[in-house]
Simulated scan of single mutants.
Amino acid sequence: MYWNGWPLDRILILFIGLAFLLMFVQVTMFHYRQNFHQKAMWIPVIAAPVFFIAGIVLAFYQVSWMKWLFKIFMFIGILDGLIGFYYHFRGVGIRVGGWALRNFLIGPPIILPLVFTALSTLGLIAAYWR
């Protein structure tokens, strides 16, 4: 494969797609551990592999409709990450002792949904890059 002709936005989209594959593995393990006790837990588990496929396809096949679809997916990813942050932060507060440091350490990871949001934001930056 010849990489010299690839612009930065295309390389970023490839990286973001691969990062969503890793996010899928991590999110699935955490939510499986909690037995998917809330239906909202399924959203990132389903969305992350879709975002992975969209990123890989867009990196290798630069068609305009795929770019628009990728942008829509990244907006959904931002929203999903923010909703996840809310649920995770609330989940820490529900634990015995409330928002004590111990509960932030052993409770739902509040940073992981923000990483999902950050990856989606980087995807939008790459998609709008000129």
Results as ranks from 00 to 15, higher is better:
V45R: 07
F24V: 09
G55I: 08
W99E: 10
F85D: 04
V63K: 05
M74A: 09
F36I: 07
D80G: 07
W65Y: 02
F51K: 00
Q62R: 11
L58K: 00
I94P: 04
L79Y: 11
G91L: 00
F85P: 01
A100L: 13
A59Q: 02
F24Q: 06
G81S: 03
I94N: 14
A59H: 03
V96T: 15
Y61V: 02
H88M: 04
F36H: 05
K39H: 00
L79V: 13
H88D: 06
L69H: 12
R95Q: 04
A40Q: 13
A40N: 04
K39G: 15
F70Q: 09
K39A: 02
I53R: 06
L82T: 08
F30L: 15
R95D: 12
R95C: 04
V25C: 10
W42F: 13
H88W: 02
H37R: 15
I53G: 04
L21S: 02
G55C: 02
H88F: 02
W65I: 05
H88V: 08
A47N: 05
F85C: 11
L101E: 01
A59F: 06
A54D: 07
F60M: 12
F75L: 06
F30S: 15
A47H: 08
F73G: 03
V27G: 01
V96A: 09
F36W: 12
Q38Y: 13
A40C: 11
L105T: 03
A40W: 09
Q26I: 15
F60K: 00
M66L: 01
R95Y: 12
V57L: 04
R102K: 08
M41L: 09
N35Y: 05
G91K: 02
H88T: 07
T28R: 06
A100H: 14
K67F: 08
M23S: 11
I83N: 07
A48P: 00
Y61G: 09
F51D: 03
H37I: 14
M66W: 05
D80T: 06
I76H: 12
F52I: 09
R102Y: 03
R90T: 14
W68Q: 04
F24L: 10
F51V: 09
I46V: 15
Y32P: 05
G97D: 03
M23E: 08
R102L: 10
W65T: 06
F51M: 01
I56T: 03
R33G: 14
F70W: 05
